[in-house]
Design a protein around this nucleic acid. Structure first.
Lengths: 125, 125
DNA sequence: CAGTATCCGTCTCGATACTG
DNA sequence: CAGTATCGAGACGGATACTG
């Protein structure tokens, strides 16, 4: 389920968010970036348990968006390899900034959550 | 619907993605960053039609995560104001990089989509 | 104003089974 | 191996109505 289009007017980066941060997209791009070209089952194993249906859906979307390339080799058994594209590699700085933010600020989020959960607040009941 | 936890092992930025790029989170943070402290209905109007239920849900989550602060003023009528927190403001570079990526690369995505959609491919039927 | 309560449609995911 | 087909379950969002 993509982000609503109505939000684009208020938030110009919504299209990119849909593109890169849809469910499973980021982990798939990440493993392709980290481990290079690989086959369908290898990706599936690294994402520990994603079903073939969902993996196929996401890979097709990423291929359509030009972030991933698919190469089919008509052998027996058939061999299909996926690789992050040049366009996909340009996302490197995006991931780098997110990694850096996570390393420096994520503990503050966890602290905030804990504080919120243990705060005295008027009971909803 | 958060990203699956199983993906975290393969992709360390999954928690941040859930935090910042969950549905509606980015647009809400964006309008708070752009237009400063504002009331519930103002946010609702800028996001053109988000329902109060959903807006409440997301604001609560962002408040719990420490990205947004909520201030309640017991007046008649009641007044509640939301503001991006200091922690939320540290996301500035993240948004900046995404904006830059969008400006320089998004047309290539659209080109790729068009090429994919008009490509001759064996019919699925 | 700032929400909450309820109902409902949709979408997606997950599990399972099957095919070239 | 690399998917496709089908089914069912559940989360989530949208619309509407109501409250302090």
């Amino acid at each position: 389920m993509p982000h609503p289009v109505e939000a684009v007017g208020a938030c110009p980066i919504s299209p990119v968010v849909d593109l890169v941060f849809s469910r499973w997209s980021t982990p798939i791009l990440w493993v392709l970036k980290e481990h290079g070209r690989q086959r369908f089952v290898q990706i599936q194993r690294r994402l520990s348990g994603i079903t073939p249906k969902v993996l196929t859906q996401r890979l097709r979307q990423l291929e359509r968006d030009g972030l991933v390339t698919r190469s089919y080799h008509a052998e027996i058994p058939p061999r299909v390899e996926y690789e992050i594209s040049d366009l996909g590699r340009t996302l490197g700085p995006v991931f780098a900034v997110l990694t850096e933010w996570s390393d420096t600020h994520f503990t503050r989020v966890e602290t905030a959550r804990h504080a919120y959960d243990t705060a005295d607040r008027p009971l909803p009941a």
